[in-house]
Simulated scan of single mutants.
Amino acid sequence: MRSIAVSLVASLFLSLPLFASPEAWQALPAPLKAELEGVAISLYELGPDGGEVALSRGNLTETTPLRIASVTKTFVAATALRLVEDGKLDLMKPMTTYVDKAFTDILREDGYDVDAITVKHLMSHTGGLTDHAQTKTFFDIIIKDPSHVWTREQALRGAVDWSEPKGAPGEKFSYSDTGYILLGHIIEKLTGKPLAAAVRLQLGLDQIGMPDTYWELAEENEDAAKRRAHQMLDGMDTYGWSATLDHYGGGGLVSSTRDMARFFQALFSGKVFRKPETLNLMLSNEGLPADSPYRLGIFVKEEKGVTYYEHSGFWGTVVLYVPSSGRTLSGAVLDQAHFKMMRQGLMEVVASGQ
């Protein structure tokens, strides 16, 4: 049943100009309606010519603001690359060049060779840093007290106390929110601005046109904040969980499927960076482990011979760009349990080559 439904989602997404009305829902094939019954889902496509396709179901539309979690990393990495363009940041320098000694001293306690970890290592998840956000202790603290206010220092301390280094710098890919917390700190130091303000200014988010997008706790967007979705995890409504648990660069942004697509479309069509070679740098695997799927803030993957650039977020969000067609696809579900099905549907679209 699931494979049938996924294929039908893909075919509908390819063919329908808009799929949101109750009448259209009733016209769906029975197997698909059974699979999607009760699933709040938003799929959105933006073509190179500006054409849009939206599919939505439940209390979720292409303009519903959600916490996008790790999709934020693409925004943060792109901001760092803008600083490279301006000559303010050197990716090959050790992170100790830019990071406060108080933070590097915490990492030294756990045996990290912080003088050998470069900024590029942080951006590509190849610095050997653990991921504090994937430890049992991190989640235990959140479940016990969802309102707990996290600081950047607490997260780094957790990385040291709750886990061990994942390898030598440059040895292998190992995904790390901890590394992006440090990258966010670097951006703040070099720009003299809070991370949210630096990202917005350096990437020109206002010019792109992203009305549903803001950085929680750091930016005001009353309209979007009032509409922010209640995202579910294992039967728990996470709406009231402190945004500080994912705030300092590994996550932090609230956005919508439409806004995520608009940013990816602008980024990968050459409208964010000032120099074409910067986008090439972002997507290059030069100097990275041969088997790494990650570049600088973005996954580069292939589905049945079709290359695409992707990032997803923990709560159930994903956005991807297909360079061969110039199309951007994004998706979100309100319940994380439905994320796999949604992403499989998007992969059907990518593989179709249409």
Rank of each mutant, 00 (worst) to 15 (best):
S21R: 14
S21M: 08
P22F: 13
W25Q: 13
A27R: 15
A27V: 08
L28A: 11
L28K: 05
P29G: 10
P29W: 04
P31E: 12
L32M: 06
A34M: 15
L36G: 00
E37Y: 08
G38R: 09
V39H: 04
A40S: 13
A40L: 10
I41D: 00
S42M: 11
S42W: 02
L43T: 01
Y44T: 10
Y44A: 00
D49I: 10
D49C: 07
D49F: 03
G50Q: 12
G50F: 06
G51P: 00
L55C: 12
S56H: 01
S56L: 09
N59W: 13
T61H: 05
E62D: 11
T64W: 04
P65N: 09
P65C: 07
L66A: 11
L66M: 15
R67P: 00
R67S: 12
A69S: 15
A69W: 07
T72Q: 06
T74K: 01
V76Y: 01
A77R: 02
A78F: 02
T79K: 03
L81Y: 06
L81K: 08
L83Q: 10
V84A: 05
E85L: 05
K88W: 02
L89D: 00
L89S: 00
L89H: 03
L91Q: 07
L91Y: 10
M92H: 14
M92V: 01
K93D: 02
P94I: 04
P94T: 06
V99T: 10
V99S: 01
V99I: 12
D100C: 08
D100M: 13
D100A: 15
K101W: 08
A102I: 12
F103Q: 00
T104H: 01
T104E: 05
D105L: 08
I106A: 07
E109T: 15
D110Q: 14
Y112T: 09
D113L: 14
D113P: 05
D113M: 08
D115I: 04
I117N: 01
T118K: 03
V119M: 15
V119F: 02
K120I: 07
K120F: 06
H121Q: 04
H121C: 06
L122Y: 01
M123L: 15
M123G: 00
H125T: 02
G128Q: 08
T130H: 00
D131C: 11
D131Q: 07
H132K: 07
H132D: 12
H132G: 04
A133I: 10
Q134N: 14
K136D: 12
K136Y: 05
F138K: 09
F139T: 11
F139C: 11
D140Q: 14
D140S: 15
I141L: 14
I141D: 03
I143R: 13
K144D: 14
K144I: 11
D145A: 13
H148L: 11
H148P: 03
V149G: 07
W150S: 02
R152Q: 14
R152C: 01
R152S: 11
E153C: 09
E153P: 05
Q154D: 14
A155C: 14
A155W: 04
A155I: 14
L156F: 08
G158I: 02
A159W: 09
A159E: 11
V160G: 03
D161Q: 07
W162S: 06
W162G: 03
